[in-house]
Every structure is written in structure tokens, then in C-alpha cells.
């Protein structure tokens, strides 16, 4: 059990891969945005890679442990301290009952994961413990942690002193610029050649009006092919309008002229085109970017995106722990 002394900016319970199987009813998967750091945090404390743990955004929580525990902090550096003493990240640490884990603003990256041996034991909802804030379901009462709450943890022994190998940790951008892979499609043929080149050669700034449903990007104008103008009226007359269709997770969704990357809590359907899709293995970079950071997009094929995913899965395994 952990008592929430300070909740942080938006700390929530997530599990991996989240609430799968309800896309056709409009339920997003939720789950950790940086599943790389998340899975390694769980493996460090001896959990299954997908066990429920905490995701902290920009500023982490202060937690008091009511029982002895083994804990790991991975992801963005939020200057974790245990009873005021700096605590190692990417490493499993023994915590005594009564000790306080304190985190603060992230200095590098945006999201930090706190895993506890045994995993967080909130009540699953539709098969997952992941929090879907905007609908108020999953996690702790459906929302981010609040001061005074007690977060239940399933009892389990963990081994302190385990570390993630240096070369198996995600490397965060040092200059606020991120190279993000995209797969063209499903609707890349609605964008003209100049528009496609502009998309791949421009700097896109992550807007502060972003959250776990969507990452808004500021950048140049989009231009379209004939297809976007000459179409049946039931699409809607604006060039970015299409007859409502299913959205892939990671789609770069073009509402008018505003591209929004649909992330873990995003909508499953709608009436705007999706010219590009960010593949699953690049999500951790989105997770670790801060508003104001620059995204540059690189085109990859479906097969390349799938091999990136396989590589990430192999990194998120016991072989990365020493």
C-alpha cells in the first residue's frame, strides 16, 4: 500500500497493453505511453512486463510506503528521492515501511514510471487496470491520483539491486528535437506531392494543448490532391473530411489544417483523414516529448515498422536486466 502525499501533475495507474478489444465500441486501449520504460520498470521489480504501475507526467508524486516494498523508477528523470536521499533510476530499490518516495519536475523526458513488486492491485475494469481519465474509468476511481488516497499493491517479494543495462535504455533527445518514424497511410493519397514533402521536411512543434487523447502539432499548411475536393457530399466539403471511418492508434489525424496524433486514450473513429500513422515502436518518443519540442518525421514501410516493434519487444525482456 502506498499513501499519496502529493499526487503530482497527472499520475495514473496503467497496465500494458491496456484495455484491448473494445475499439468497436469507442473504448481506447489507454496504457503507458512509453511502454519501453514501463515494461523495464516492471521487469526490474520481478513483475510481468505488463503489470499495473504508475505513469507520472511532467511532475511526479510523493508517496509514503505503508509496507516494505521493492520499487523501480524508469523513464524521465524526475529527481527521485527516498527520504530526501537521491534514489537510483533504472534500478530496483528496497523501500522500508514508512519511507517516502519523492519526485519532482522532470529534467529530461516527460513521463516517469514507478513500478512496485507485486504490481498495483486496483480493481480491473473491462479487463484492464488502465486509467481512461476522460471517461473516468479504470485505475483509482477512474482518474489521476489524488492526495490522501491509498494505492493498493499486491504483496510480492522483489530483488533490489537489479539494473537495466545502459545500452537497453531509451535515449532521450538532448536538444528538444525528436526524429519520429511514420508509415504513410491510410489516406496519404489525399495529400499532394508538395504536401507530402512539406510534411517530411518541416519542423512540427508539439502544442501545449496536447494530452493522452491527442498530440496537437503546429506547423505549415497542408495541400491536397484532387481526391480531397472532388468527392461525394457525404464526406463533408472540407478537403480533410472523409466519410467517418476507423482510426488506427498513432494516426496523424488532420482536422481541417490541424494535425493531431491520436495516442493511447484517443478516439476510435471519426470523419477526418489520416495521411500518416506513427508505429507502435515510436510511441515512447511521443511520450517523452514536452510541449514546445520539435518533431521531425521520417517515412518507413509497414515491414520496417513491424521489425522496429519486434526489436523493442526483445529489448523489453529479462535479457536487458543485470
Amino acid at each position: 500500500m502506498m499513501e499519496v502525499i502529493k499526487p503530482g501533475l497527472e499520475t495514473c495507474v496503467q497496465d500494458y497493453p491496456g484495455r484491448i478489444g473494445y475499439w468497436n465500441q469507442g473504448f481506447p486501449p489507454s496504457g503507458p505511453m512509453d511502454s519501453w520504460s514501463f515494461r523495464l520498470a516492471n521487469l526490474l521489480v520481478g513483475n510481468e512486463a505488463g503489470a499495473a504501475a504508475l505513469e507520472c507526467q511532467f511532475m511526479g508524486p510523493t508517496l509514503k510506503f505503508q509496507r516494505d516494498a521493492v520499487v523501480a523508477v524508469c523513464g524521465a528523470d524526475m529527481q527521485a528521492k527516498l527520504d530526501g536521499e537521491p534514489m537510483a533510476q533504472w534500478e530496483s530499490v528496497a523501500v522500508k515501511a514508512g519511507q517516502v518516495l519523492e519526485t519532482s519536475f522532470s529534467t529530461a523526458g516527460a513521463r516517469t514510471y514507478i513500478a512496485v513488486a507485486g504490481g498495483i492491485a486496483t480493481e480491473p475494469w473491462l479487463g484492464s487496470r488502465s486509467t481512461f481519465h476522460q471517461a473516468g474509468v479504470g485505475g483509482m476511481d477512474g482518474h489521476a491520483l489524488a492526495a490522501g488516497q491509498v494505492v493498493p499493491v499486491a504483496g510480492a517479494a522483489g530483488t533490489p539491486g537489479k539494473r537495466v543495462k545502459e545500452d537497453r535504455r531509451p535515449l532521450f533527445s538532448a536538444d528538444k528535437t525528436w526524429q519520429i518514424e511514420v508509415v504513410p497511410g491510410p489516406n496519404d493519397d489525399w495529400i499532394d506531392e508538395a504536401g507530402q514533402q512539406r510534411f517530411l521536411s518541416s519542423d512540427w512543434k508539439l502544442s501545449a494543448r496536447s494530452n493522452r487523447t491527442g498530440f496537437r502539432l503546429d506547423g505549415p499548411e497542408w495541400t491536397f490532391t484532387d481526391k480531397a475536393y472532388n468527392k461525394a457530399p457525404e464526406h463533408g466539403a472540407e478537403p480533410s473530411n472523409i466519410i467517418d471511418h476507423g482510426y488506427p492508434l498513432g494516426a496523424i489525424n488532420l482536422g481541417g489544417q490541424t494535425p493531431i496524433i491520436l495516442v493511447n486514450d484517443g478516439p476510435s473513429m471519426g470523419g477526418f483523414i489520416n495521411p500518416y500513422t506513427v508505429p507502435s515502436a515510436a510511441f515512447w518518443k511521443l511520450a517523452q516529448a514536452k510541449p514546445g519540442d520539435i518533431f521531425r518525421f521520417t517515412s518507413v514501410t509497414v515491414e520496417q515498422a513491424q521489425s522496429m516493434a519486434r526489436e523493442l519487444t526483445s529489448i523489453c525482456s529479462a535479457s536487458s536486466i543485470e
Partner: peptide, 17 residues
């Protein structure tokens, strides 16, 4: 059959309602 990243495929059957 249109790709949506590494895990999705959009199957477009027509272009009207």
C-alpha cells in the same frame, strides 16, 4: 487495403454512404 502503421489495416469498401 490501406496500412495504418505496424498493426492496423483500413479496408475501404466504397466512397459513399
Amino acid at each position: 487495403f490501406l496500412p495504418g502503421g505496424d498493426r492496423y489495416m483500413l479496408i475501404e469498401l466504397g466512397n459513399e454512404m
